[in-house]
């Protein structure tokens, strides 16, 4: 009896069980695969761990502030080399060396986060900052707040003596005012504490220097550049 029962029922019951096993295994493979795929994606685009992603405020601020700093370093470097005014040379050296170190910190973070240390060529500046205003130079190039145009840099290079010193102070003041705006926003909105901290330090440092630069311009009988 059992001999006959077993043969007649075994094929269909074991067939049903193996189907179930196949389906279950496939579902598991699918779930594991999907999960792994999503993890790989998230990790690689920088959203899966503690690293900020390409569209984050942290990355946008770091890339843009680095470029903003690089121009301040250029401006200050010129004044440190060429100004005949000791007080201006000292301030220029301070700005140049501080911002050079900070720009290195920013590029170091970006490298660790797996992001480009300069914003990619097809990406406009200031995407990360709500309400940001970029300005365009005569050729339509989009510039971050406070950035000098190529023409203004050429003009500064050509000037000498007090004219050079005053124009440097004017460009540096406007540059700081723009940087201050960017740093204040990042100090409030960046996700990572160390990013907010540096942004805060940049904002308060440049705020103090804005006051100083304004007084230095006036002490030399000039006015800040018109907006």
């Amino acid at each position: 009896m059992t001999d006959q029962d077993t043969p007649s029922t075994a094929p269909s019951s074991s067939g049903g069980r193996s189907t179930l096993v196949y389906v279950a295994a496939a579902v598991v493979v699918l779930l594991v695969g999907a999960a792994a795929g999503m993890l790989i994606t998230l990790a690689a685009v920088g959203g899966g761990d503690d690293n900020p992603g390409p569209d984050s405020i942290d990355v946008g601020f770091s890339q843009d502030m680095r470029v903003h700093h690089l121009q301040a370093i250029t401006l200050a470097g010129m004044a440190r080399d060429r100004s005949e005014d000791t007080e201006v040379r000292q301030l220029a050296f301070d700005i140049e060396s501080t911002q050079l170190d900070q720009s290195g910190q920013l590029s170091g973070w970006l490298t660790v986060w797996g992001q480009p240390t300069l914003s990619p060529p097809d990406q406009p500046h200031m995407r990360w900052m709500a309400g940001a205003h970029t300005h365009s130079d005569t050729t339509g190039v989009d510039l971050m707040p406070g950035m000098a145009t190529s023409e203004e840099l050429m003009k500064l290079r050509a000037l000498k003596g007090t004219e050079f010193t005053v124009y440097f102070l004017q460009l540096m003041l406007r540059h700081h005012e723009g940087g201050l705006e960017m740093a204040s926003y990042a100090a409030d909105h960046a996700r990572l504490g160390y990013v907010r901290n540096l942004a805060q330090k940049i904002a308060s440092g440049q705020q103090a220097e804005v006051t100083l630069l304004t007084s230095m311009i006036k002490a030399r009988g000039a006015q800040p550049l018109p907006n």
């Binding site: 496939a26 579902v27 699918l30 792994a36 999503m38 790989i40 994606t41 685009v45």
Partner: peptide, 21 residues
Amino acid sequence: AIVLLAGGVFTYAFLQVSDAQ
């Protein structure tokens, strides 16, 4: 179907990754 779907997920993830990176 399941294999194709899983393959699709992997391909999508791979493309996302390679595009960004």
